[in-house]
Amino acid sequence: MITMTTTTTTGTPVLEATNVTMRFGGLTAVRSVDFTVNSGEIVGLIGPNGAGKTTFFNCLTGLYVPTEGTVSYKGTVLPPKPHLVTKAGIARTFQNIRLFANMTVLENVLVGRHTRTKEGLWSALLRGPGFKKAERESEERAMELLEFVGLANKRDHLARNLPYGEQRKLEIARALASEPGLLLLDEPTAGMNPQETRATEELVFAIRDKGIAVLLIEHDMRFVFNLCDRVACLVQGEKLVEGTSDVVQSDERVVAAYLGTPFEGVPEDSALDEVEAAEAHSATSTTSVEVEGDQK
């Protein structure tokens, strides 16, 4: 177990979500969640399957437009457009890895640099000195990041040919390339063995040491409680509890939610499945889709 000296200089809030609600038709996947991430913090988001964690992530990054509520980054309200959110300084990875499979490792990271460069079509066609300089700088920066996650020697491999663990690392490097102030990791250790998980842990600490706040969804409890300064538990779309690892770990409602003991105010049993179905359904399109009871 890694004993960590929590930097309690939790300064200004980086991310503030207020009263975020996401409804898919008649189904409420996320219900009035208030959430804050401060600079220099690692925050974990846990919860049973179908609790609405990824939906909440998608609301934060603009993939979904929240039905109610606002998300603001460093005090400015974010527009619900993914590319503008990334431009503002929030980068993310995906639960099921979404690399550009047929691009090389280096190209993947260079795509991540998109928002921090601005060479357009004309400069690409004319190839002035500015273009060459920007390309060179982008490449240097990308190589630094590949160095950072330990993939520098694989720069010309196609992303699809990397082993699973390295694909996860590459996705993180790609997200870091956009120079974010906050990094959202959606299940970064899913499918990893214990060694890889530990390596990811080190990587997340290293990212925090770069001054980037981290918000992560994870099911590996040891990983979460080792890593996070603060943990929030989401159950059935509502934030159940939030606090330090000890607080959340000892909260009996959390235990109940995971172990299945009924707790007060439980809606119908089918609600859970519906959230899952709705999430899976709307993952294919960014528009909110009408999900009625006929979904079965």
Binding site: T61, L63, K81, P82, H83, T86, K87, A91, R92, F94, R98, L99, F100, A101, N102, M103, E107, L110, V111, G112, R113, H114, T115, T117, E119, G120, L121, S123, A124, L125, R127, F131, A134, E135, S138, R174, A175, S178, T286
Partner: peptide, 30 residues
């Protein structure tokens, strides 16, 4: 000339990224 130069640049990479995975590409700021 236009084709080769456009393909090997920031804009060309973002075209390929869009082709590969549009959702991920927009999440990368494109």
């Amino acid at each position: 000339l236009v084709y080769t130069r456009a393909a090997d640049s920031r804009i060309g990479r973002s075209w390929i990224a869009i082709r590969e995975d549009e959702t991920a590409a927009t999440a990368m700021g494109i």
